[in-house]
Amino acid sequence: MSSTVEIENKLKRIFDPERLVLMDESARHAGHIEASGSPALSHLRVRIVSAHFEGLNRLERHRAVNEALSQEITEGLHALAIEAAAPGERTRW
């Protein structure tokens, strides 16, 4: 399973973001999934601002991030919250 640092580096390579924040929320969900064999990183929130998202709707942005992290999802990333924006768009954060 990838670490947040590895995931951050991957997202930087793929999306060249002007802003990127990863929040490991796994501890807040302890016991949510079976403990046996559960990855240390199970719940992740991604906040990303990238020109890559210009002209894409919310679903297309989420699909792009999901595709970029498909290996991590296959390896057990259980929940991925994505907040993606294009430069200049308002964000809640």
Rank of each mutant, 00 (worst) to 15 (best):
D16P: 08
A27Q: 11
E75L: 14
P39S: 06
S3Y: 05
V21Y: 02
L77G: 01
S70N: 13
M1S: 06
I82F: 07
S38W: 04
E72L: 07
I14T: 06
L11H: 07
R61V: 09
F15I: 07
I33T: 14
I33E: 12
M1V: 12
R61Y: 01
R28E: 14
R58K: 12
V21A: 11
W93E: 14
L77A: 03
H32E: 06
N57P: 08
R19Q: 13
E34Q: 03
R63S: 05
P17K: 05
G55V: 09
M23A: 13
P39G: 06
P17C: 10
A51F: 00
N66Y: 10
T4F: 04
E18N: 10
L44R: 00
G55T: 05
E6K: 10
Q71M: 10
K12S: 10
I33R: 08
S36G: 13
E6R: 10
L44H: 04
A79Y: 08
L69F: 02
H52D: 15
R13D: 14
A27L: 12
T91Y: 06
I48D: 00
I33D: 08
L44S: 03
E75A: 15
L22I: 02
P17F: 04
F53Y: 02
Q71S: 12
R58L: 15
R19I: 06
F53S: 02
L41A: 03
K12G: 08
N9H: 13
P87A: 08
E60D: 15
L80N: 09
E72F: 07
S50M: 10
I48K: 11
N9K: 15
A27S: 14
R63W: 09
H29R: 02
E6P: 10
H62P: 12
A30Q: 05
F53V: 00
R13Q: 13
H29T: 11
M23D: 09
L41H: 01
I73D: 00
N66K: 07
R90A: 11
E54K: 00
P39V: 07
Q71A: 15
E34G: 12
R19E: 11
E83M: 11
S2K: 12
V46Q: 01
H29L: 01
E67V: 06
A84S: 14
R19P: 02
I14G: 04
E75F: 06
M23N: 13
I14Q: 05
G76A: 02
H43C: 02
I14N: 03
G88L: 01
G37F: 00
H32A: 10
R90T: 13
I48V: 10
P17D: 09
R92M: 10
I48L: 10
I14C: 05
K10C: 12
R47D: 03
E75H: 14
H43M: 11
H52I: 00
G88H: 08
K10F: 02
N9D: 13
I33M: 00
H43E: 01
I48W: 06
R28N: 11
A79K: 11
E8A: 13
H78Q: 07
A30I: 13
